[in-house]
Nucleic acid binder design. Structure first.
Lengths: 202, 202
DNA sequence: CGACTGACAGATATTGAAATCTGTCAGTCC
DNA sequence: GGACTGACAGATTTCAATATCTGTCAGTCG
């Protein structure tokens, strides 16, 4: 019990407990035990267990957001940039699912229960997609009249490669083929896409 | 106990029991009770409870497959035909989810556990998509070098509008906008899409 | 004979009592 | 005074005893 208990120390301990026990078994008492304090002290920094879980997950997602920063390498087309980004996202998610199953499961629980964390996460990543599409529109490689809406459509169309509900399918040996086919279709669509305003343009 | 017990009568009774109690509560004993026979008799027609559940679900899905037969109306483009078909599928699934929640839940259970029924279902519907795309290729409205693979990509890209794992999102007021955007993107992609054989065409 | 029954073993689900956990707060300790 | 404790009430979870269910099969009945 060296220094005063900090929120950061609690978050680190919670992440550790979560990694060890998973979201179903981890308790606030466990976290306090890991820190050598009473569980009452934890409640001095986080109002509820849910808030604590959210804070840990947000920290974890922020690391992903940073890693997923788009790479606008010279000499790459917007299509190549987008494909690379989607592939990196897919790889990252698969990686999380097998290498940190408990943190992934924590995120899965949050997706089912709350809405604010998933919204935060998706909003951030769709923003990245929008930047890539925007760059493509500027070079006239892509066509769209609403970048944000189109970015959301790209996100939705590739849903099965990043939504945790599909995690169990990511182990399928043909999943990469499915990914390639969907991404090719989506990229082809970006070359000439208009979202219907009222009636379908079909 | 009028006639000899038939498989068909058992299926009808099972569907009724499933509608009433849902997949979690429905038992073989309930089915037998509904038929006025001992549960041993049911096992004379179906080897296991799982087989019975599968048979009922298959019957239910076959009705959907028939309803989802593509409509090649005169004067409609392939794009319009595809959009109509996807919309009908989406509406049908949403309808099932709210109007026959127990049968939908039974299908959901099957998707998690087994693989043969979902494969059967998806294979059938992707076949329908392939027929629509094929017609579009013939009129040179669509371009693809592998109709089946492209049909699967269209299926995967619209996943969140038919996969039961996303059923809870179908109540969102903006879901139709998301659907329209994804379908527009996909249809735009079909107008010029090539699946990469080894390296990406990006 | 062949459709059906009913009793049975092992597996699964339900129940209710005991244990643990969450969130609070008056009180301790530096 | 402010960080921390520890005991507490109500909610949730665990656990083991009990009941129900699944699948089998020897035996009944027409």
């Amino acid at each position: 019990m060296a220094e005063t208990l900090t929120g950061e120390a609690i978050l680190a301990a919670t992440e550790e407990v979560l990694r060890r026990y998973g979201p179903a078994k981890a308790t606030v008492v466990d976290v306090a035990k890991a820190l050598g304090v009473s569980h009452g002290s934890v409640y001095r920094h986080f109002p509820t267990k849910a808030a604590l879980r959210e804070a840990v997950t947000r920290r974890w997602l922020d690391a992903i957001h940073t890693e997923m920063e788009p790479r606008f390498d010279q000499g790459l087309t917007a299509a190549e940039t987008l494909r690379d980004w989607l592939q990196r996202l897919f790889d990252r998610k698969r990686h999380s699912h097998v290498d940190e199953p408990e943190l992934f499961a924590t995120f899965q629980v949050l997706v089912k229960e709350s809405d604010t964390i998933p919204t935060y996460h998706v909003g951030h990543l769709v923003g990245h997609v929008a930047r890539i599409i925007s760059a493509g529109v500027e070079t006239q490689e892509f066509v769209t009249d609403d970048v944000r809406k189109t970015a959301q459509a790209v996100w939705d169309a590739t849903d099965m490669f990043h939504h945790p509900a599909h995690a169990q399918e990511w182990g399928d040996p043909h999943i990469q083929d499915a990914f390639d086919a969907v991404v090719s279709l989506v990229i082809a669509g970006l070359r000439y896409n208009r979202i219907p305003s009222a009636a379908g343009d079909a």
